Amino acid sequence: MQNVVHAMKTGAMALFFTGAVLVSQAQAGGNGMPIEAQCDAAAGSRDDRTRNTDFAPVEDGGIKLGMALSACREAYKAGGKPRITFQLARALEQGGQLLAAQGLYREAATRGHTAAMVRLGRMLQEKGDPSGAFALYRRAAEAGDPGGAYALGFAYRDGIGAPADARKAALWFDTAASGGYEVAALKTKFAHQDGAAAGTGSR
C-alpha cells in the first residue's frame, strides 16, 4: 500500500513539474527563450550598438518576417526597450509596412536609439525632407554612432539638408571608418580627394 501511495505522489510531482515547465516555455515563446531574446535573434542589426550580441546580426532583407513580427510584437507589447522597437520597425519595413515602420523608428529615435535615427533619416530623405534627414544624421553622428557619421558624411558630400562641404564629408567618413564602419573606409579615400580638389580650386 505504501508503495502505491509513494508511486502516486511521485507521479503527481512529475505532472506538476512538467506543467510548470510547459507554462514557463509558453511564457518564453514555446522554445525556452524569452520573447525579447527571440526578437533579438530574429531581427538584430549589426548597425545597432545596443544589439544583443548573444545572437548573430540579421542582414537587411534577410529577416524571417513571420518569426520576427510575432516575437518582436510580443516583446514590444511587453514594454520592450528602444532596441526592440527598432527591431520591430526593421521587420515592418522589410515587410513593406513603411508607415508603421517610420512611426516606430521615430519612437525609438525619440528614446535615444541612434540606429533608429539613421533609419528614420533615410526614410525622410527618400520622402523629400532633406533637412529632417540631416538633423537626424547629425544627432546620431554626434552621439558617436558610426552609421550616423557615415550618413552625415554623405549628406555633406552631396549637399543633403546642408551646403555641400567636402572637408566635413571627409571628417565624418573618417569618423565612421575609425568607429568600425567598414564601407566608410572606401568612401573616405574619395572624400579626401574631393576635399583636396576643393582646396586647390579655392586658392
Rank of each mutant, 00 (worst) to 15 (best):
V5F: 08
H6P: 07
K9I: 08
T10G: 09
A12S: 11
A12M: 02
A14M: 07
L15S: 08
F16L: 01
T18Y: 14
A20F: 12
V21S: 13
V21D: 11
V21Q: 15
V21N: 03
L22T: 06
S24L: 04
S24E: 14
G29T: 09
G29K: 11
G30N: 10
G32H: 12
P34W: 00
I35N: 02
A37E: 08
A37T: 11
Q38H: 03
D40A: 15
A41V: 15
S45H: 14
R46N: 11
R46I: 03
D47M: 10
D48R: 06
D48L: 01
R49H: 12
T53H: 11
E59Q: 14
E59F: 02
G61K: 07
G61T: 04
G62R: 13
G62M: 06
G62A: 13
G62T: 01
I63S: 06
L65Q: 06
G66F: 02
L69S: 01
A71Q: 03
C72Q: 01
C72K: 03
R73L: 01
R73P: 02
E74R: 13
E74D: 02
A75N: 00
A75Y: 00
K77Q: 11
K81L: 01
P82K: 04
R83G: 04
F86Q: 04
Q87C: 01
A89Q: 06
A89Y: 01
R90G: 05
L92M: 14
E93T: 06
Q94I: 10
L98P: 05
A100T: 03
A101Q: 14
L104Q: 11
Y105R: 10
E107K: 13
E107S: 10
A108N: 07
A109S: 08
G112T: 09
G112M: 09
H113Y: 01
H113C: 06
A116V: 12
M117G: 03
R119V: 09
L120E: 14
L120I: 04
L124V: 11
Q125I: 02
K127G: 12
K127T: 11
K127Y: 08
G128H: 03
D129E: 05
G132P: 09
A133N: 04
A133Q: 13
A133Y: 09
L136G: 02
A140I: 00
A141E: 02
E142V: 06
D145C: 12
D145G: 05
D145W: 06
G147D: 06
G147I: 14
G148R: 09
A149V: 00
L152A: 08
G153W: 05
G153D: 05
F154A: 06
A155K: 05
A155W: 13
Y156K: 05
G159D: 15
P163W: 03
A164C: 02
D165S: 09
R167P: 00
R167M: 10
A170I: 00
L171Y: 13
L171Q: 13
W172K: 12
F173K: 05
T175V: 13
A176L: 00
A176S: 03
G179E: 00
G179R: 04
Y181Q: 12
Y181V: 07
E182P: 06
V183W: 12
V183T: 15
A184P: 08
A185S: 14
L186E: 10
T188Y: 06
K189H: 04
A191V: 01
A191D: 04
H192R: 14
G195N: 10
A197T: 05
S202L: 04
S202F: 03
